[in-house]
Amino acid sequence: MDIQITEQIIIMLAALVLLTAFAMLVQRKIYGLISLFMWQGIFLALTTAFVGYIAHRYHLYISAVLTLLLKVILLPYILRMLIIKLKISREVESVVNVTSTMLIGIALVIFSYQLTAPIRQNSAFVAQSIIAIALATVMIGLLMMITRRNAVTQIIGFLAMENGLFFAAISATYGMPLVVELGVAIDILIAAFVFGIFSLHINTTFDSLDVDKMAQLKEDY
């Protein structure tokens, strides 16, 4: 394949990753949120494979397969089981202030471009200039965790943030060494399990998944 076309594809895929991040920010239906997360995983895996192809880093193919297994199949499966068990698969969450959340999201993207300027100057390779998008994905995941009140949505926000980190590693450095990447993947998997167990506990103890209900531990002023 022509290198230039591949570069174009990579940039387009990066844009799609960012787009899904924005879509997740305002998606009210929890089922739709999981689908979006799955799509983000697919774009991520494809980017990884294309970067591996264009940069001749064939260990990235392993990363791509790993991403596909973990983020497109395993994690969405766990999340679906979780929401079925919690009986919230049809729930619609109220999202306050869609407009301002979107605007903050846009501001975060600009901020990320500003922050990563020294890195983009130092890079010869096209994929490295998309590290700003990776950082923006991390930031938007963070924003999602702040604005949403449902425990399961916060889990998805956390996982989306992790997607952004993985994306950063791919774009800036063709991925971390394999030992590290495997370790991170295992950590994420354990974290997802622990999160799942937790939301079950929260549901039984507080009779709700709204994290605002947990307000016992506060400082008395």
Partner: peptide, 23 residues
């Protein structure tokens, strides 16, 4: 309830924090 709230807070805050460290 207190223990679960504390652990959730710990998890979320340290999870977010440690994600920054990975970056």
């Amino acid at each position: 309830p207190g223990a679960i709230e504390a652990a959730w807070k710990y998890f979320i805050l340290c999870g977010v924090g440690i994600a920054q460290a990975l970056f």
